[in-house]
Design a protein around this nucleic acid. Structure first.
Lengths: 337, 337
DNA sequence: CTGTTAGCGCTTTCAC
DNA sequence: GTGAAAGCGCTAACAG
């Protein structure tokens, strides 16, 4: 059925070894033979078998990408960036999604899924357990994280503390003093520290400004709109005065808070300022002020580094901080009064 | 470095063939030997080489998934569903994203990316060109589309015409007579008919109700929020009276229209009703009335069928219509007056 | 129930 | 510059 390298060799009247060299652009092949081989291969519609060359070389030209979800803003865009550079370099992208099972027994990622199957692994914003990390390092394939720090391997991400601080400084600069917070990452996310970093920056900024951190002005979500609504409800329903501003751990949560505020007739930004982190696709249309980051670029940068490492550039994968930027839109203004 | 089947065979004092049978759960192996092999394999940390077995069997236990984007609602969720059933069945998911290059020369999907690499291909809501379709069918691997009809292969999707009609009937039932439309798919999407089907249903419903289809009440977008805003602006800015309702080709566009309406002080649903299709994650929080579909289920269903087909159940992949449902929330009401 | 023996299709020394 | 031949690790007859 499939035409093999032998067919090409026969047709071109050369050995399989020569066909192999010619097709891969290796030296030690005369231009005449190379041309001949190329034309015969094209004519026959020859496509090399990845399994065969994988077996022979030990490399699969496939990169694994491990994600907690594919249907969430950050991951979708990061994967898109990764896919693009992989494609440009003739690499395949093997996707492993935990589908939300960030922890627990339903979580099904194991070393065996990866062994002898991929040349390197990109881990997206994921807290790997000690055991998983151990297994992964044991496979000895290059590893790189994207979207947040992961112990034991380098990563590509923004300085979450600084980003959150920039958001807080914006609010503080506007004159807000009663600032609430929708935090991300409800529970134990193991080694994944992003939500905690952002929340820590909130507390630090408040204290630095000499402001009180009121527990009833902090609510936890999981980075989604739905949870943003839930967290906002919790804060809005709390007895006592409301904050004049909300710093949200993600744009989705910020948007959720905006929806809930609108539902209650709380005017934004007149009565309440809202700022998020991400610059989600919905943020510009909704007029949300945010700290923008570009997961697509993160993916590209990470994949590029990993490819360089595979190409032999030892040390090509290093921790690298990506830029972020405050984008002021219409959800923030000085506090009322 | 890697421990091979021979190592296991040696340690277990059996032949490689026996190890192979034992590990794959084939018959004709005594329980005693099977147990022995299993324990030795575990002890040695043996993991079979996909390349080797792929070479030997001609099957890779990998399914390809071709998508126009991974960072869009429908696709992200569909991929999640696909990934899950693949994982449950020991299959790998090789992702091919066109990254938005739905057409044009930057589009890089070719037969060679697929040949000898995957056992089957899932094509997500994508209009393949005649040439691509020809190449794909030429590879003779099972094909199945998800999210919309693709000529030449079966598919899993909702009846878009009926879904759009349900949305229109809701509006009509509420008493609306001036209904505008945000259509999807701006330009030539080749063989991808979903946007056109929805728009056709709009026209048909209008005519059936004896209502005028006004060109200035129809604006085209590309299914995204940003385009929804743009299209809404176009309609809102048109001279003459405004429609009292908007039927949008996707929830993202509907949400964009809602943002724009809010910006202009057009009250929803008092002055304007908006209905979409999808039940996007943002729809419930935003209170958008919509026709809900479940891409995650579509993905699961499609992957399951393809796997069955691969397992030998000829004809397992057939056209199958998935359910949809009107979800009434707070963006629709009877027209003013 | 188990072992032997060919490959699967490609890469890679090592000769020539 | 080119060819011969030995694998890479596993599966699949075919014997026994």
């Amino acid at each position: 059925m499939g035409v093999s390298i032998d067919d090409v060799a026969a047709q071109a009247h050369v050995s399989t070894a020569t066909v192999s060299r010619a097709l891969r652009g290796l030296p030690r092949v005369s231009e005449a033979t190379r041309a001949k081989v190329l034309s015969v291969a094209a004519e026959l519609g020859y496509v090399p078998s990845p399994s065969a060359s994988g077996l022979a070389t030990g490399r699969t030209r496939t990169m694994g990408v491990l994600v907690p979800f594919v249907d969430r803003w950050y991951f979708g865009h990061a994967i898109e960036g990764i896919d693009q550079v992989l494609r440009e370099n003739g690499y395949n992208l093997l996707l492993f999604s935990l589908g939300g099972y960030v922890h627990g027994q339903k979580r099904s990622f194991t070393e065996s899924m990866v062994r002898k199957q991929i040349d390197a692994l990109l881990v997206l914003s994921l807290g790997l357990s000690e055991e998983e990390l151990r297994q992964l390092h044991h496979t000895e394939i290059p590893l790189l994280s994207v979207g947040g720090p992961v112990v034991g391997c380098s990563g590509v991400y923004i300085d979450d503390g600084a980003a959150a601080t920039a958001a807080m400084d914006h609010l503080l600069g506007l004159g807000h003093r009663r600032i609430g917070h929708l935090s991300g990452g409800v529970q134990d996310e193991r080694n994944f520290k992003v939500p905690a970093l952002r929340t820590l920056a909130y507390r630090t900024a408040m204290e630095r400004a000499g402001l009180e951190v009121r527990p009833d002005w902090i609510a936890a979500g999981d980075f989604t709109v739905a949870e943003g609504v839930r967290a906002a409800v919790q804060i809005f329903d709390a007895p006592g005065e409301l904050p004049t501003a909300l710093f949200c751990g993600s744009d989705e949560m910020a948007l959720g808070a905006m929806f809930e505020a609108q539902r209650r007739g709380i005017r934004i930004p007149e009565e309440l300022s809202v700022v998020g982190i991400d610059d989600h696709d919905f943020s510009a249309p909704a007029g949300l002020t945010t700290i923008a980051q570009k997961p697509w670029h993160h993916g590209r940068a990470a994949a590029t580094m990993l490819l360089a490492e595979l190409a032999g550039a030892t040390g090509a994968t290093r921790d690298t901080l990506m830029p972020f930027e405050l984008v002021v839109r219409h959800s923030t203004a000085p506090p009322p009064g």
